[in-house]
Amino acid sequence: MVLATVTALQATLLGGLLGPLVLTGVLVIIPAVVAGVLPRLLRTAALVAAPLAISALLVNFFFTPNGATVLFQIGPITATAEGLRVAVEAAVRIAAITGALTLFYLTVPLGSLVVDLERRGVSPNATFVISSAVRTVPAILVRSAEVTDAQRARGLDTEGSLRRRLRGLLPVIAPVLLGSIAEVEERSLALEARAVARRGTRTLLWWPADSGLERFSRWLMVLSVPLIIVARITGWLG
C-alpha cells in the first residue's frame, strides 16, 4: 500500500507543473489519506512551501504591473485584482508541486526506490550515486557539527558578532569540504575490493511488488501529460 504511489507520482509531478491544479490536489490528498500520512504530509508540505508561497504572493500581488482594477494602495504600492489572481495561481501551483513531492518522500522509502530503479534496468552506478548522495547529506551535517565543536574547543568563536561568525565560518567549511572529498579515494578502493568492477548482472535480494492496477494508473498519468500539453497549446485550458 505504501508503494501504491511509487512511480505514479512522478507522472503527477509533471502534470502538476502544467496547470490543472485542483486535479493535482486530488491526486495528492486522496493517496495521502489512503496511505495514512495526511497529517504528516500537511505539516511537512506547509513547512517547505510556506516561505515560497508567501514570497510568491507578495511579489506577484504587489508588483504586477498593468493591473487595471485597483484594489487598494499603500504608498507607492498598488494592489490590483490582476495581481491577486496571478499571486494566488502561483501559490496554488507551488502548493501542488510541494504536496506531490512531499507525498513521494513520505510514502516511498529510498531503499525501495533504488531497488525498483535497478530492477528496471537503471545502472548500479546510477543507483549508487542516488543512495549515497542521500546518505551523505546527513553525514556532512554530522561532520560539520563535529568540526564546529572541535574548532570551538580550540577557542574559535562561532557565535557573537557577525564579523566573528564569518571569520569562524572558513575553518569549519574547509575541513568538511576537503575531508569529504579526500575520502573519495579510500572509498573507491574499498568498493573495488567489494567486486563492484565485475561485469554482468547483480543479484537483487528483494524488490517491491508492482500490481496491475499500479501499472495501469501509471500509464494513464504518463499519457495525460502530453494530452495536457496539447490542450494548453491549442488554448483549451487557457
Partner: peptide
C-alpha cells in the same frame, strides 16, 4: 581491508 572502517563501508546500505 583498509585502516578506516567508515570510508570502507559502501555508504549506501542502511
Amino acid at each position: 581491508v583498509f585502516q578506516d572502517p567508515s570510508s570502507s563501508l559502501t555508504g549506501i546500505m542502511s
